[in-house]
Amino acid sequence: MQKIEKNCALQNEKIIELAGYKKEDFSVCLGCKICASVCTVNDLSINTNPQELLSSLFLGNTIEKDNPLVRYCTNCYRCTSACPWKIRIPEVVRALREDLGIESQFEKAFKGAISIWGRVYEPYVFLMSATFMLKEGYMQYMPKWLEYISFHLPHKTKRR
């Protein structure tokens, strides 16, 4: 049991580093929960608490895949902007998602295009995520999306 806890703590430190932070950086969190009160996920009628997520990471506790922030954080930076320490919580959530291997088919296709061409090539992204889009009912929006359609060939560039 102790070993598992230790592993989790190490894993959490890796996640914190992935987000560009050090564990100590979170020790300044005042627990004021301003982040929780402004979080956009509240507007989805889901209770969230970014502060709890940070303290779980800090204390070496496991964060599950179905944590509402892991699932629904919109990268709106409202929490960061309200936080006295300007902690970039959405970036921590992104690191967590990466560590947990969470990616929608669309996100996978998006990154796939970048690794092939160095740029996002939308026709490819749509093709590669077609089953997801069909299943999830995106096709109904096609009439509204006509103005977004453009045709060009992919441009290949070095990714970095």
């Binding site: 992935l18 987000a19 967590l96 990466e98 996100e107 970095r160």
Partner: peptide, 20 residues
């Protein structure tokens, strides 16, 4: 010339994202 994607918000690794 030859710009590459900025990575948007799709990468959890900060160094990788800023690298783009």
């Amino acid at each position: 010339p030859d710009w590459n994607c900025c990575g948007a918000f799709e990468y959890g690794n900060r160094n990788e994202l800023v690298g783009f």
